[in-house]
Computed example of a mutant assay.
Amino acid sequence: MTAQGKIKHTARTARGKVKEIVGRAVGNKRMVRRGKTERVTARIRHTAEKGVAALRHRGKAAKGRTQEIVGSATENNHMTMRAKLSKASARISEKLNK
């Protein structure tokens, strides 16, 4: 997930919370509902994007493992080293995503 996506979802969550608070302050139930809906929707989208990013990183790691095995079997050092780099990159990206 990109930093831009995190900012976008955080802003939407905050905007929903503000609507909810203002709605309560003025006694507007419709605004309270809309704010709560907006806040929950932003959290759901954020969670979904995190899941997609995690799957993407796991796919890269699996590809790296496969390349490493093939490189070792064929004694191709270049492929093995590239695969190790790919695995490490995927692990780092996954940790940063959390």
Rank of each mutant, 00 (worst) to 15 (best):
S93H: 04
M31L: 10
E68N: 13
I44H: 10
A42P: 03
E38L: 12
T74G: 04
M81V: 15
K98F: 13
L55T: 13
I44D: 09
V40T: 07
R45N: 14
R65K: 15
A53T: 14
K36H: 12
K84F: 11
M81Y: 13
R56I: 08
R33F: 00
G51I: 01
I21Q: 00
E49W: 08
A54V: 07
H46A: 06
R34H: 11
A90L: 04
Q67T: 05
I7G: 04
A83V: 03
R33C: 02
H9T: 09
R56D: 08
N28S: 05
T2Q: 07
T74W: 11
V52S: 11
A73T: 05
Q4V: 15
T10R: 11
G64P: 01
R58S: 04
R43F: 10
E75W: 15
K17C: 13
N28K: 01
A73L: 07
T10H: 09
G59Y: 07
I92T: 01
A53W: 09
A42N: 01
A11E: 13
K84M: 05
M31W: 01
T41L: 06
R82W: 10
H57L: 08
A25W: 02
A88S: 11
A83H: 02
K87Q: 03
T37K: 15
G71D: 04
R58V: 01
K60D: 13
T2Y: 04
V32C: 10
A90Y: 03
K95F: 05
I92R: 04
H9A: 03
R91F: 08
A90G: 03
A42F: 00
